[in-house]
Design a protein around this nucleic acid. Structure first.
Lengths: 336, 336
DNA sequence: GCGGTTGCTGAAAGCGGTTACGTCTATCCT
DNA sequence: AGGATAGACGTAACCGCTTTCAGCAACCGC
């Protein structure tokens, strides 16, 4: 009862073998006699021994830890990524550090640097605002990084995301097929590729249906409830429309809020479709038609990629696109 | 350009001193001559040296890492805790491991055990379902644990939470003061102290207003949209009411969904008040009246407590109650 | 009977830091 | 002048594990 936890030496002494043998037995490396193995197991359970992973990490250079670096976990889409990551990580005995940056670039850099010092095996990033060169610097120093959802402009960082353009096309086509022609778009935050891709898909679909393009139908938002709300108010004031495609579900919430506030009803007066298919999309009033993003699979794929990268395998393919899917609920209907 | 990262030996050699001096200089322990210090700083920045925290942890026995263990980060309330934790943790140079259990007790134990092996400095737990004895075992072995939001039945684990009873009273009093007397309650998951406290506060308020108690006005939910939806459907079928207090905002969403589905309107036909004040509560249709829970402060306090505990200070007070606050929006109105 | 495997194990050198202890000046006091 | 003290630094042990290398049986084929 020394108070402090037993070490591999205690186990070795009790089992009457050397620490090398204990280590081998516990890791399944090398060959060990059945009798020895049993003695070690007995000693382990008698002492309640558990290897100190810190010590192990020091020599193996692997911490069995990855990090997730993103602006804000309160964003439900980011939160949805976690279970996919967790599942893959846990399967390989790894744990996940969560680092939220609040969108502050200095904080991103501070974290990246801290993570490097902590010898994490790799980091998953999403929604970063740091210049890609700075991120590439870390990659160059040997820190594996993979990007999910939102791209950064760097060829050295693999990316796993949904096909945003196709998703936006799906959403817009759905509205078109209901008979809408005055279809607005509340875009995402300006300057992001993801926003551009969704705008692009929206325009593609309109063009394919030979619907004239009207710039007063597009408002810039910010991927937030607030942004959607403001943008929709602007849209309602500046144009007439019977349907809106919001860049994501969060802004769709704000959009519906603005619509209700203006005395209009969803979907009677204006149809709304979102993007992401957050858990809560099924429980808005009315339940939201939206483009499903396979967050779980995205996260899984990205994590697997990262773990592979950390293990030294190099990944052949930089870009991994997953397919979106339209989920029709009650926020869309034919125009009045 | 050896490829691998510089160690303290490299710095020592370049600065012409011993590793002990470098260590002291870098940690500010012991006294070192200004000239030496300058030489070391120069060597550090020339080499781009960054201490290996793993090696440091091995000897200091502190990993500067805490863990957050909870069922599911996709629950926005849990997510809201993260920034408070992060803020305090980062201030002390610590990072946070996120461990989600999906409510599976084996997984909780697996994680706790893994975290112990990883030598984390402490763990923050919320919403665990593991028997309190099992958790106390870890505490006894020297793993600092503090509980936030939801209690576990163990005197060895400090708890930081909002005053749930008072919060529920606030919500119910608000409805009473609007003139409601048929006030329903969609409770939280059964068997949890947090659910009982909120039911208790609801009953207290009714009793204080001398409103007769009607068991058909209380339905059991589960703190989820789905649970709120089902419970509200049952309530609407079994009883007549003009207002509902939902055990949390998520179930309030489900409640509003069920109300809308039944052809009634919020708040015209039935008023709804929630609990938590999630970010999205301001953007539901209609915006939700709810009890604000100071998640950021709860998280901060709990983290500070944990860090203190890890530093060996013992905390005098086990229970830390914070004050709730009513936020009135548009989901409540006087009865028709 | 002998060199060559095969199976199992131990001694010891790290991994990259921290820190107790000792040493050596320079300064200070009486 | 002599001893005490403080300042600045080096030596080396150690944190708890992994892993190379070598050793020693017992076995094989010939």
């Amino acid at each position: 009862m020394s108070g402090s936890r037993p070490t591999i030496y205690d186990v070795a002494r009790l089992a009457g073998v050397s620490t090398a043998t204990v280590s081998r037995a516990l890791n399944g490396s090398g060959q060990i006699a059945p009798a020895t193995s049993a003695a070690i197991d007995a000693a382990v359970s008698q002492l309640g021994y558990q290897p100190n992973t810190i010590a192990r990490s020091l020599v193996t250079k692997s911490t069995q830890t990855i990090a997730l670096l993103l602006p804000d976990i309160a964003n439900p889409f980011y939160a949805a990524l976690v279970s996919g990551i967790q599942e893959r990580a846990l399967a390989s005995g790894s744990t996940m550090l969560l680092c939220t940056t609040e969108g502050v670039p200095e904080r991103e850099e501070q974290y990246l640097s801290l993570l490097r010092a902590k010898q994490v095996d790799g980091v998953l990033v999403d929604g970063l605002v740091l210049p890609p060169e700075r991120i590439a610097d870390f990659v160059r120093e040997g820190l594996p990084i993979v990007c999910l959802d939102r791209d950064i402009d760097s060829t050295s960082v693999p990316l796993v995301q949904v096909d945003n353009r196709v998703g936006a096309q799906l959403a817009t086509q759905h509205l078109l097929s209901l008979g809408h022609t005055r279809i607005g778009h509340v875009a995402g935050a300006p300057g992001l590729r993801i926003s551009d891709e969704r705008i692009g898909g929206y325009r593609d679909a309109l063009a394919a249906a030979a619907v004239e393009r009207d710039p007063t139908l597009v408002a810039v938002g910010s991927f937030t409830e607030e942004g959607g709300y403001e943008a929709m108010r602007a849209l309602l004031a500046a144009s007439t429309l019977t349907a809106v495609f919001a860049a994501n579900d969060l802004s769709a919430l704000g959009v519906m809020h603005a619509i209700a506030e203006s005395g209009r009803r969803v979907p009677d007066d204006v149809s709304v479709v979102g993007f992401d298919d957050l858990r809560l999309a099924a429980h808005t009033t009315p339940p939201l038609t939206t483009v499903h993003q396979p967050a779980f699979e995205i996260a899984q794929r990205a994590t697997q990629l990262l773990l592979d990268l950390a293990r030294g395998c190099d990944v052949p393919q930089r870009l991994h696109l997953l397919e979106p899917e339209l989920v029709v609920r009650s926020s869309t209907a034919p125009p009045a």
